[in-house]
């Protein structure tokens, strides 16, 4: 049991870590806001869930386990909600997703906003 749990935990942690990186690469490399949001929020939830589940399997005491479960519930509630609100706000404010074929031009949000 304990060996199975340990290997399962390692597997969950490694997959979670990979998802973390892939989601962030997507956040960095994808062409417009909505694709970035897709990359970030989908992997965010999954990676967080997997890493926290991996940690849960190694929790030394039940109180650590309970706290990890609470964090997981919290993240699973707030992450998608914040993502949904963000996408909705962006769409309402006139940010158009890039479409294949005729590439819709992104409405200039903040021309002098510094950055690149």
């Amino acid at each position: 049991m304990s060996i199975v749990a340990t290997y399962l935990s390692w597997a969950l942690l490694v997959i979670g870590g990979l998802l973390c990186i892939s989601g962030s690469v997507g956040l960095l490399r994808f062409p417009d806001f909505f694709t970035r949001m897709h990359a970030a929020s989908v992997t965010d939830t999954l990676a967080t869930g997997m890493i926290l589940a991996g940690l849960m399997l190694q929790a030394p005491t039940w109180i650590v386990l309970a706290k990890l479960i609470m964090i997981l519930v919290f993240v699973l509630l707030t992450g998608p909600t914040a993502g949904h609100a963000l996408a909705k706000a962006a769409l309402h404010s006139g940010l158009k997703p890039l479409l294949p074929g005729k590439s819709g031009v992104l409405e200039a949000d903040t021309k002098p906003s510094g950055g690149v």
């Binding site: 919290f74 509630l77 707030t78 909600t81 949904h84 609100a85 909705k88 706000a89 309402h92």
Partner: peptide
Amino acid sequence: SDHVVLRIVSKMLIPL
């Protein structure tokens, strides 16, 4: 008021 999901989830979260 148009953020319905946000309001419902927040109502669940505020007591927590």
